[in-house]
Simulated scan of single mutants.
Amino acid sequence: MDDLEEPRWLDGEEQQSWFAFAYMLIRLPAALEAQMQRDANISQFDYLVLAALSMVPDRTQRMSDLADATASSLGRLSNVVIKLERRGWVRRTPDPIDGRYTLAILTDDGWDKVVTSAPGHVNEVRRLVFDPLTKAQQRQMGAIGQRILQAIDPELLARIQSSRDSQGEQ
Rank of each mutant, 00 (worst) to 15 (best):
80 V>S: 03
54 S>W: 00
125 V>A: 08
34 A>R: 13
82 I>W: 08
98 D>K: 09
85 E>G: 09
12 G>N: 11
113 K>F: 05
102 T>S: 08
10 L>Q: 09
134 T>R: 09
20 A>K: 09
95 D>G: 02
39 D>I: 00
136 A>S: 14
28 L>F: 05
75 G>C: 05
52 A>E: 02
55 M>Q: 14
75 G>D: 12
27 R>H: 12
73 S>H: 06
14 E>A: 10
104 A>W: 02
22 A>R: 09
98 D>E: 09
116 T>G: 04
17 S>A: 15
52 A>N: 01
40 A>E: 07
78 S>T: 12
59 R>E: 04
66 L>M: 07
83 K>Y: 03
39 D>K: 11
85 E>F: 07
46 D>K: 01
108 D>R: 11
40 A>V: 10
24 M>E: 14
139 R>M: 14
49 V>M: 02
141 M>C: 07
36 M>G: 04
133 L>R: 14
118 A>E: 07
28 L>R: 04
122 V>C: 04
13 E>V: 15
121 H>T: 05
102 T>P: 00
126 R>G: 01
109 D>G: 07
41 N>S: 14
132 P>R: 08
153 D>E: 11
108 D>E: 15
70 T>K: 00
149 L>C: 05
14 E>I: 07
89 W>P: 00
76 R>W: 03
93 T>M: 07
33 E>Q: 15
99 G>M: 12
58 D>R: 08
63 M>V: 04
66 L>R: 01
66 L>Q: 02
146 Q>E: 15
33 E>R: 05
44 Q>F: 14
143 A>Q: 15
40 A>S: 15
136 A>N: 09
56 V>L: 00
58 D>E: 14
74 L>A: 10
31 A>M: 11
69 A>E: 01
99 G>Q: 13
108 D>W: 06
118 A>D: 03
118 A>M: 10
131 D>F: 13
80 V>A: 06
95 D>V: 04
96 P>T: 05
130 F>Y: 15
124 E>N: 08
141 M>N: 08
15 Q>G: 11
18 W>I: 03
95 D>S: 04
32 L>C: 07
73 S>Q: 11
28 L>H: 01
88 G>F: 12
29 P>L: 09
146 Q>C: 11
69 A>N: 03
75 G>W: 14
83 K>P: 03
137 Q>F: 10
21 F>N: 05
40 A>H: 06
115 V>G: 00
85 E>Y: 07
17 S>Q: 13
44 Q>L: 14
99 G>H: 13
108 D>G: 08
130 F>D: 03
111 W>G: 06
59 R>Y: 06
114 V>R: 00
36 M>F: 11
50 L>N: 00
